[in-house]
């Protein structure tokens, strides 16, 4: 494996990790506020569909982004209505939303475009363009640094850079602002927050709004990358993001490394059908299952312990 191959694999790692990172951060905000979100997958899918549909009709991916975020937000609000307002089971609501997205995108897509559930494919100008950072072309031929800068660091879409920026931003919001402190508190001990005179319901809805926006961006990224919406195109990424969230122990910087790791696994799996090590061949299916296996091992607490926010999954009921 030469240097350029490594750079190329890392480059596709960043591409594949971008939607995972955005979705993982979405889950992070929601779960840190005490609302478990299995519905990430559904939000991702709904956003990808609406983004693909709006971008193909208007020809602008930025309008697509607006539509994607709106769709994802709508799903987030249904989740809030069920699990915060009506104090329903957050897990069941999430499962229902995943199915709702899987079904509605195809039913509505077929009615709108008559293409068997997909949206018309997006021309280049209706997708996110690659951003070439300054001096990228000039530096391309410089040995070692050139490919690193030209291939890996430069030449991604706006959303990738936004996703990377979202990591320090999330850290700052969660750990350096009053809102963040309250948000984390509401996921650990909501009655204490309530006693302090801060609305638990408002905080949790605010967390779901952030989660909705981030998932909307991730879904739009998927639609742009694949040049349109295809049935079930999220392909379990919402669940991988959920796994990454556990892997990251609900922390923003760890989320970056966890999603990059899972992106790397996917990139390697895409590039090599099977990996031979001496006499032993690692099957491609093993590479596909590895993120899930790693998550189970982490969950089992054999390698460090992942402790979720304490109030996660339980609706808050004021004492009467």
């Amino acid at each position: 494996m030469d240097y350029l191959t490594i750079i190329q694999i890392l480059d596709s790692t960043v591409r594949l990790a971008t939607p995972l990172l955005l979705t993982c951060l979405a889950g992070l905000f929601s779960e840190r506020a005490g609302v478990v979100d299995i519905g990430l997958e559904g939000k991702l899918l709904a956003a990808a569909f609406l983004a693909g549909a709006a971008a193909s009709v208007t020809g602008s991916i930025w309008i697509g982004l607006l539509a994607g975020v709106a769709g994802s937000l709508a799903f987030s609000m249904i989740h809030g209505l069920a699990s915060i307002t009506f104090k329903g089971d957050q897990l069941i609501s999430g499962v229902a939303l995943n199915f709702l997205a899987a079904g509605l995108t195809v039913v509505v897509g077929q009615s709108w475009f008559k293409l068997g559930g997909r949206t018309p494919s997006l021309p280049t100008e209706a997708r996110f363009g690659e951003w070439n950072l300054p001096f990228s072309d000039a530096l391309a031929d410089v040995p070692f640094i050139g490919p690193l800068y030209h291939e890996l660091i430069s030449g991604h879409t706006a959303l990738t850079y936004m996703a990377l920026l979202a990591v320090p931003l999330s850290w700052w919001v969660l750990y350096r602002t009053r809102f963040g402190l309250r948000l984390r508190a509401v996921g650990e001990n909501p009655s204490a927050v309530d006693t302090a005179g801060v609305s638990v319901v408002r905080l949790r809805f605010a967390a779901l709004v952030i989660a909705g926006v981030l998932c909307g961006m991730a879904g739009t990224y998927l639609a742009s990358l694949a040049a349109g919406f295809v049935k079930d195109m999220s392909a379990g990424r919402g669940y991988i993001a959920l796994a990454a969230l556990i892997f990251a122990k609900w922390r923003p910087w760890y989320a970056l490394s966890a999603t990059m790791l899972f992106g790397l696994l996917e990139a390697i799996g895409n590039r090599y059908q099977s990996i031979t090590m001496g006499d032993f061949t690692i099957p491609v299916q093993f590479m596909q299952a590895l993120p899930y296996i790693l998550t189970v091992i982490i969950l089992a607490g054999f390698v460090g312990k992942a402790i979720p926010p304490r109030a996660g999954g339980t609706p808050y009921v004021k004492e009467r």
């Binding site: 249904i78 069920a82 329903g88 069941i92 609501s93």
Partner: peptide, 9 residues
């Protein structure tokens, strides 16, 4: 699932 499960209340 939504109505019988999550929106029971």
């Amino acid at each position: 699932i939504m109505f019988t499960g999550a929106l029971d209340n």
